[in-house]
C-alpha cells in the first residue's frame, strides 16, 4: 500500500531533482549516525573480541577487574535505591503540594544537569577532604568518606538526582489528582492509595527514570575520578579501570571492560525505548 507523502511524486516533471535532494539528506543522516555513533561501537566490539575468548576469560579473572565491576555495581544499586525513593517523593511533592519556595526547589533539582561532574567532585573534596568543613566530624568517628566508597556513592547520587524526578513529574501531572482523590473517598489509606493507584500509574515513567539513572551511574567518571583517589583494587570503578588501564597500555583489558559496559548500556537503551512506548501509547489511548 502506498502511504501519502508530503514530498511530491518523483515521477512528475521536476521530481527527479527533489528525489536527489531527499536522497542526499537521508544519506547524510545515515552517515552522521553511522559514523559518529555506530563506528566507535563496532571498533570496540572488534578490538575487544580480536584477542580471542581466552583473553576475555583472563581479563574477567583479574581481581582488579572483578573488584572494579563489583564497585560499579554497589555504587549503581545504592544510587538507584536512593534516587528512586527520594525522587518519587520529591516528584509527588512538586506536583501535588503547594508551598513557598516550590519553584526554587523545582529549579535546584536540575542543578546537576548544569554542573560539570568535575565541579561536583571538587565540591565533595571541599566538604569531606583534608581540612574540609565536615571532615572533623567524620574523622572523630573514624569514618572515611573521601578516597573511599561513601564519597563515590555520594557524588554519583548527586549527579543522578534529576533523572527520576524529571521523568515522574510529567506523568504525575498528566494523570492528575482525581484518581488519588477517588481512592481516598472509597476508603483507601494514604499508603493504599499510593500502592494501588499512584505507583501503577507512574511505573513506566519511573522505569524510564531508573534506566537513565543506571546508565548515568555506570558511566560516571568525572566526579568519581576526583573523589576516589584512584586506589587500585579499592576505589577503582569499571570506568576508572578503563581510564588507568589505557595509561598502563593494557589495551585489551580496557576494551573488554568497555565492551561489557557498552553491552549493559544497550540493554538499558532497549528498556528505555520500551518504557517510552508504554508512556506514549497510554497518552494516545486516553
Amino acid at each position: 500500500m502506498r502511504t501519502p507523502s508530503l514530498i511530491p511524486d518523483a515521477s512528475l516533471p521536476g521530481g527527479g531533482r527533489r528525489r536527489l535532494v531527499r536522497g542526499g539528506i537521508v544519506t547524510a543522516c545515515i552517515l552522521y549516525v553511522g559514523v559518529l555513533l555506530l563506528l566507535p561501537l563496532v571498533g570496540i566490539i572488534y578490538t575487544a573480541l580480536e584477542p580471542g575468548l581466552a583473553k576475555i576469560w583472563e581479563t574477567f579473572s583479574l581481581p582488579d577487574v572483578r573488584h572494579a565491576f563489583y564497585l560499579t555495581g554497589v555504587i549503581t544499586v545504592v544510587t538507584i535505591a536512593v534516587t528512586t525513593f527520594f525522587g518519587v517523593i520529591t516528584a509527588w511533592v512538586l506536583v501535588r503540594q503547594r508551598f513557598p519556595g516550590k519553584s526554587l526547589l523545582n529549579a535546584v533539582v536540575d542543578l546537576p544537569f548544569a554542573l560539570s561532574p568535575v565541579t561536583v567532585g571538587l565540591a565533595a573534596v571541599i566538604l569531606f577532604g583534608a581540612g574540609g568543613w565536615l571532615e572533623p566530624f567524620f574523622q572523630a568517628r573514624g569514618i572515611q568518606i573521601i578516597f573511599a566508597l561513601p564519597s563515590m556513592v555520594l557524588v554519583t547520587i548527586f549527579i543522578c538526582i534529576p533523572f527520576t524526578i524529571r521523568e515522574v513529574v510529567p506523568v504525575l501531572e498528566e494523570i492528575g489528582k482525581d484518581e488519588e482523590d477517588a481512592a481516598r473517598t472509597l476508603g483507601a489509606s494514604i499508603m493504599q492509595t499510593w500502592r494501588k493507584v499512584t505507583m501503577p500509574n507512574i511505573r513506566w515513567g519511573l522505569l524510564y527514570g531508573i534506566a537513565l539513572t543506571t546508565a548515568r551511574a555506570i558511566g560516571e567518571i568525572g566526579a568519581v575520578l576526583i573523589v576516589s583517589g584512584l586506589i587500585k583494587g579499592q576505589t577503582e570503578t569499571a570506568t576508572l579501570f578503563i581510564f588507568t588501564a589505557i595509561e598502563e597500555r593494557l589495551y585489551a583489558e580496557a576494551y573488554i571492560v568497555a565492551l561489557t559496559l557498552a553491552a549493559v548500556s544497550i540493554v538499558l537503551l532497549i528498556t528505555i525505548e520500551t518504557a517510552r512506548h508504554r508512556i506514549e501509547g497510554r497518552k494516545v489511548r486516553t
Binding site: 492528575g176 482525581d178 484518581e179 482523590d181 481512592a183 489509606s189 494501588k196 493507584v197 501503577p200
Partner: peptide, 26 residues
C-alpha cells in the same frame, strides 16, 4: 461518602470489575 467526579476518575490500570471492587477490597 460516595463521590462521582466530572472526569470519571476511574483507575485506568484496572478493569471495570476491579474498579467497582476497589472500595470493598480496601
Amino acid at each position: 461518602v460516595g463521590f462521582v467526579f466530572q472526569h470519571y476518575a476511574l483507575f485506568r490500570h484496572m478493569t471495570v470489575r476491579q474498579n467497582v471492587e476497589f472500595g470493598l477490597a480496601v
